[in-house]
Design a protein around this nucleic acid. Structure first.
Lengths: 334, 334
DNA sequence: CCCGGTCATCGAAGCGCTTCGACACCCCAA
DNA sequence: TTGGGGTGTCGAAGCGCTTCGATGACCGGG
């Protein structure tokens, strides 16, 4: 076992300077001569000093920890959520911050608690619903926050996400361009729409709105995640829409099933039915055939969320709304 | 915005007692008269007091935070990992602790850093490899830790997991009982075995060892996660092992593909091929047909890991190794 | 040669809490 | 009546850090 931990006092004594000098070397808040700085840094590394997080938080009123609020709701695709989460952790570290993980079961009390106890400096919230219970709380919290996703009413909030409406529209445009005039959107499970999850609804709205402008006819359906249900949905679709030749799939868990179902129903991709997905790159690449897709840039969104929250902590004014432009990548399925 | 936060001094003044009395009411470390306790608790709730986490950590040498070390390695099934993680967070809250999330990209330095800075009191590590780089570090860390999973050398560690060897054996026994004499194990992707991930190897060992005792012949193969690869693997298997009538699948992501592949290859489940899975309950239930399975008790493992780490923090002696007994649940696939 | 102004450093206060020893009080046994 | 042993409460020290004001050394200009 490693012994008692080294304090700033011991570093100061070892370097022959005052405690405050060590502190200023670390924070850079006052000028320190090159010579002194070097001596202090040497002492720090030979003694293996790490500032005590609690003491620092107490004296500076900053914990250097941000909370990541990650409810794991039914129907959400966990691997995608974790890519966001992972990106948030990595980005936070580049600002010398750590990440406290909050899940749903404590409800909004968890948010209130960690804010009031000064455990964290700020919040990043994921899996935002249109009418999210957490939102009113954020408005009168003394700590900054950023949402990944958009609730219905964004006044007073900072939100960041992929522009899902534009993504839906871009898929329609792509299929129209390829000459498809009857298409469908297979979206998230019904429960996700009912709950009012922003990204699902916005994609659908973008999809529907774009149909009109492009002279394409199409329907938007929710889509469950078991093979049997997908098979049935796809079967019904092909029966009801005889001319159907294009499919937009916005459901990571169902993508594989959709392709299997088409195969079993005797439709070739892309010859008989063209398929565009809205999903992370690796999901699209691992499918067979590899899917033309609009990339969900999880890493970029996570990084951007952290950048925004750090700017807010630094007192900067940040845009209320950050919508990342979708990019469609051509692969073998269209 | 909520105003400046309430301190213990204000609570004490409001209740007409000393600061230390408030502290003792909260910690229960000294006897306090019922009357005083009530007055203090009233003041706390009317003022909305929450102890300052940093101050508490500084004075008590306990941060009430545990670190969850969760590398997201290739080939791991993220939804299952997140069930463990989620269970850890929930369990930690029942001990009044929060969870700091550490990912892989900082490597072992992250562990060292948060330990040295007293940001956390203890560690729970997931996704443990047989020869894990984090293990030697844990041995000379001054903080307790618990591993979810078993490395090759467990001396000086505390580990908890499902007994995967017994699980593999139990699947063999179940199929043998049903009269199947030629079976196969489809496991994790090859990369997971190569990396030396304990649970994958132990299941395979348990499976192979049980074959001998039960007079069943069988093979164990790694299994990738794309449909095409699964289809090929299953196809090869049926061709090379003509008498094959039982399959054990220990790969959450491939389960669905295996069933699709069997269907496409004209085999009915369970009439032609019986399938047993090792996976969380919901995955087994959502498959079609619902799968007979050995449950991976993520919630229980997470809870147990937290219980162990809290016992260690409390100075109790805990068992080095906790192996949860597997339970096979009968469903429609065998 | 003295004065004002940097620059580099120091000392001390204070952040909000826990914990230790002290003490006042009360009850009961001697 | 006195003494001893609990109870219940208080005051103060101290946890390790940041930050503010003060100070000394050194510079160039008048």
């Amino acid at each position: 076992m490693t012994g008692r931990s080294v304090t700033i006092t011991e570093v100061a004594r070892h370097a022959g300077v005052a405690v405050s000098t060590v502190s200023y070397v670390l924070s850079g808040k006052r000028t320190i001569s090159a010579d002194t700085r070097r001596r202090v840094l040497d002492s720090i590394s030979t003694l293996g000093y790490h500032p005590h997080a609690g003491a620092r938080a107490l004296a500076s009123k900053r914990s250097n920890v941000i909370a990541l609020v990650l409810p794991l709701r039914a129907g959400m695709h966990v691997p995608v959520l974790m890519r966001f989460a992972s990106a948030v952790v990595t980005a936070a570290r580049t600002y010398d911050h750590d990440v406290l993980l909050l899940t749903a079961d404590e409800g909004t009390d968890g948010i209130r608690r960690v804010a009031a106890s000064a455990l964290v400096d700020a919040f990043v919230l994921m899996d935002v619903e249109l009418d999210d219970r957490r939102v009113p709380l954020l408005r009168d919290l003394a700590k900054p926050s950023v949402l990944i996703g958009f609730p219905a009413e964004t006044a007073g909030l900072t939100c960041v996400d992929l522009d899902f409406a534009a993504s839906g529209a871009q898929c329609v445009a792509h299929l129209a361009e390829r000459g498809h005039d009857t298409i469908a959107l297979l979206g998230a499970p019904a429960v996700v729409y009912e709950r009012g999850t922003g990204f699902a609804r916005r994609t659908r709205e973008g999809f529907v709105a774009a149909l009109a402008g492009s002279g394409v006819s199409g329907v938007a359906l929710p889509c469950e995640e078991t093979f049997d249900e997908v098979y049935e949905t796809v079967g019904d679709l092909l029966r009801d829409q005889p001319g159907l030749s294009g499919l937009v799939v916005h459901n990571e868990a169902a993508v594989g099933h959709v392709l299997s179902a088409l195969r079993q129903l005797g439709r070739r991709v892309p010859q008989d039915v063209a398929v565009v997905a809205i999903c992370p790159d690796d999901v699209a690449e691992r499918a067979s055939p590899p899917l033309t897709s609009v990339l969900i840039p999880a890493e970029e969104v996570g990084r951007e969320a952290v950048r925004l929250v750090m700017d807010k902590l630094a007192g900067k004014v940040v845009p209320m709304s950050t919508l990342l432009t979708p990019h469609l990548v051509l692969r073998a399925s269209t």
